[in-house]
């Protein structure tokens, strides 16, 4: 599939030269199980993702978008195809290399937040900043998501939106090159969802982080640079927005 971004003028800003993709994916396939019971989750995906972009992956449940996100994040390995991160072959990474990749390059935001209930907001962030190379201080990351005044609360004392923003702070505190968000607003109401998306948008804009958001909510496509639509493990549609909508303008 042709790269739709190739014809567009490069956006200014990111430190990394635009022409060199962060992710270079060709013919990516992922099958689970063997023989008759085999399930194909991805059936030949091609895409290139660039630094500073905000990408939305749309698709129905079971379309393969989560599988694709897991591949990009080094949580799972492909069955076949090319999967390169900054020219390095992710598919050939071993467990130890994948761990380093996830530790230093990728920030994850999960639909279920996945905070450690026994740690406060600040400690949840600090848990990760302790193990990476050049992190922000946890307070700074929490300030970026607007939670500077709630950081000594335990997850159980925070609302869903606040918990998800802690999760974003946790993801960005390592200054990742890639921010991967799996249905980040799936469990939230509209207003809370928008504050969460604002946080993602801000990180993407201010830190030049490549952000990839999975959603089945088509409205969110308006805030993206490019939108990929998946169905049955393939990319069936790619479009680019000439103008990105601000998160707060979204309505659903």
């Amino acid at each position: 599939m042709a790269d739709p971004l190739a014809s567009l003028p490069a956006r200014p800003g990111p430190a990394v030269p635009v022409r060199e993709p962060v992710f270079h994916v060709r013919g990516l396939a992922r099958r689970y199980g063997e023989g008759e019971a085999a399930v194909t989750a991805l059936a030949g995906v091609d895409l290139d993702l660039y630094a500073g972009e905000l990408i939305v992956l749309l698709g129905a449940s079971g379309s393969g978008k989560s599988t694709l996100l897991n591949q990009l994040g080094g949580l799972d390995s492909p069955s076949e195809g090319v999967l390169e991160y900054r020219g390095a072959n992710l598919a050939a990474f071993g467990e130890a290399e994948l761990t380093v990749f996830r530790r230093d390059a990728v920030g994850f935001v999960f639909q279920a937040y996945n905070l450690i209930p026994s740690l406060t907001a600040r400690e949840n962030v600090a848990l990760i900043t302790e193990i990476c190379r050049a992190p922000m201080v946890p307070e700074e990351a929490l300030a970026l998501v607007g939670l500077a005044d709630r950081m000594n609360h335990f997850p159980a004392q925070l609302s869903g939106g606040e918990q998800q923003r802690v999760a974003i702070a946790r993801a960005i505190a390592k200054r990742p090159e890639v921010l991967l968000c799996d249905e980040p607003t799936g469990a939230l109401d509209v207003r809370t969802g928008i504050t969460v998306l604002e946080a993602v948008e801000r990180i993407n804009r201010e830190l030049g982080t490549l952000a990839v958001i999975i959603t089945h909510n088509a409205v969110m496509a308006d805030m993206a640079d490019r939108i990929f639509t998946l169905s049955d493990g393939r990319i069936v549609n790619v479009r680019a927005n000439t103008r990105r909508a601000a998160a707060r303008e979204l309505k659903w």
Binding site: T99, F101, R103, N114
Partner: peptide, 16 residues
Amino acid sequence: REQIAMLKACGFSNRQ
């Protein structure tokens, strides 16, 4: 289970 998955996704190694 989920916490373990999160730790691993965030870059904690199996050994850790």
